[in-house]
Design a protein around this nucleic acid. Structure first.
Lengths: 186, 186, 186, 186
DNA sequence: CACTAAACGAGACGGTACGTCCCGTCTTGAA
DNA sequence: TTCAAGACGGGACGTACCGTCTCGTTTAGTG
């Protein structure tokens, strides 16, 4: 087919969802936004609306982790990775207009993914943190896997439920990381 | 209006969702299942399909917490509350056919709620655990709120992502609670 | 349902066909013209476009014969019936804007009917003429059925192919009837 | 342009119509059947589907008259021409699978032609019969044109509406021709 | 006990989106 | 050049729900 058209469709659908929400985004809308006929949408996504929506979610999901990775890739140590990761992730969640729109208007497709893939995300985060944890060093008798698992849980938990912390303030995040997340490790 | 009719509609809708999934459950289906005309659905839920679905989710959500409360209400101490709560919650999540059906087929309405209300749920769990924590006693210099908050985070994290633990086995759960969750407290 | 709506739809479709031709008449067009939603068209004609078109043809076909019957019902004798019938039928054919439009633009649905039902029409005309023929009297040894059959064939033939006669001129028709059609009978 | 391709397309389209009916025959179908790409169809028939269909009808119409001519070309006299012509034409009509398929399923394109061109066909038949009529001889005071015109009308009428005659039986046709068609002439 | 008002069933209707099919145009690449 | 291959816009089709509305017909509750 033409991969550029596919990309344009994903972006267009994404824009429509941002503007009108998931439930109110029509195949027609997405097609028009992409400057493409409705028939072509079905040529690229034979599964129709469902496949299109699903693809957009996966596409944006991947983009989020890519940006997150770029954000923390040049960090120095464990603390910095966690601090910048938490700040970025929380900011992305809060600022993410599409996501917020969906969360408010129709709890309908993004989060399930987060939950369905909660296990996966959790594992991924733990694996990502492990090397930093090795370099950082741990208290005597602490198991690496368990520690990384613990950090991943806490990071994910705080990202979605900051509780009494203001995750927009890097100072507070630094304090959170050192006093509550890493305290149990080292 | 007849409150019994409303209840019947919620249950009927719930059944339909269990059988056909959210996206494929029609207002007509729910009405038929409840032995009620379609018009009546709109009399009880003027917001139409959306309001009906939303109400069903809230209804089932409340039922879940009610059952969870009954399950742990006669527990003795903090450990028992957490053990039985985790086992029950995880079992409920895994066995819950409707929830599982939705998670698999259409990640579309339940989880967002879990996420949107993640903050709320987290707060609620922490508040519920606090009294038990007081009776249980904490290490010197530990703040009650912080400890309860920590426990709530871990409990919720493990419920959705058991990781290497088999939450169907009470023995393992007991070990988990004592070695990882309460270890940091006491 | 509502028979009035059905009637309105038939008339509306008829009007659309008159204006835009058969092939270019859309279900949407007919619905709009009837002041009805497209969905309703499918409620009254579950067979969709085909059934609608077919019904319109039958409807107009019946209307034509009804008018023809009214035209000749008060005629005196065989000659007058044939004269007025031929004049009326030919005039109707020539003036019938829809029919002419279809004949010119799309030879597509009316005539087949005339041919498919040629046998039927022919029988019907013969039967209609028979009583007049009885009153009119026939030459010795002439069979009524055969004579009526002959008249029907000639009438139908001349209506569609006038040949050298001007069927708009009652005088010529009178001459045609007496010199060529009835000459063989009496 | 390659005339052979054009011929192949006409034949292919004809075959498709025979198999699936007019309405269900696609440009794609015809192209595939002719072993030609869809684009090529539009090169040979710029008018698209309509022109293609129309051409097929005209093509088959001409073939019919050609075969009819061959059938009667070696006949001896007027009676034989009419007998064999009627038998052949009626048989062709009845046996013609495509024509019959169309007459039954979609009264939609062939017959109109027969009617639109009724005048022309009628004139043509009359002209064809005239020479035979001359050789055959007529009753005193009978005009040749009028007699030929009369015969043409009757022949065409009987072909489409046999009435009580079995046109598959040469004996009956012979009787019909002599007792009813030629009786009025001679 | 009758009578009125609410609840309800039944279902017609307008409207909107879906997914499918086909047409006619156009571009590309190979023979 | 001629053609096959196929992407594309356009547009109609038939289907499925939705939400609104209007009818009768119960079913209560009240004077």
């Amino acid at each position: 087919m033409n991969p550029e058209v596919r990309e344009r469709l994903l972006q267009a659908t994404y824009d429509c969802v941002a503007r009108w929400g998931l439930a109110k985004t029509t195949v027609e809308d997405a097609a028009r936004q992409a400057g493409v006929s409705r028939a072509t949408v079905y040529r690229y996504f034979p599964g129709g609306r469902d496949e299109l929506i699903s693809a957009v979610v996966g596409w944006e999901f991947a983009r989020f982790f890519l940006r997150l990775y770029e954000e923390v890739s040049d960090a120095e140590g464990l603390e910095e990775v966690m601090e910048r990761g938490i700040v970025f992730a929380h900011h992305a969640l809060v600022e993410h207009e599409v996501l917020q729109r969906i969360l408010v208007t129709e709890p309908e497709i993004l989060l399930p993914r987060l939950t369905t893939e909660a296990e996966g995300t959790h594992t991924l985060v733990a694996a990502f943190l492990a090397p930093y944890l090795v370099r950082h060093g741990m208290a005597e008798g602490t198991d690496l896997d368990i520690a990384a698992d613990f950090l991943a849980r806490m990071v994910l938990s705080y990202i979605s439920s900051p509780g009494r912390w203001d995750l927009d303030d890097p100072e507070q995040v630094a304090l959170l990381v050192r006093s509550e997340l890493l305290a149990g490790i080292r």
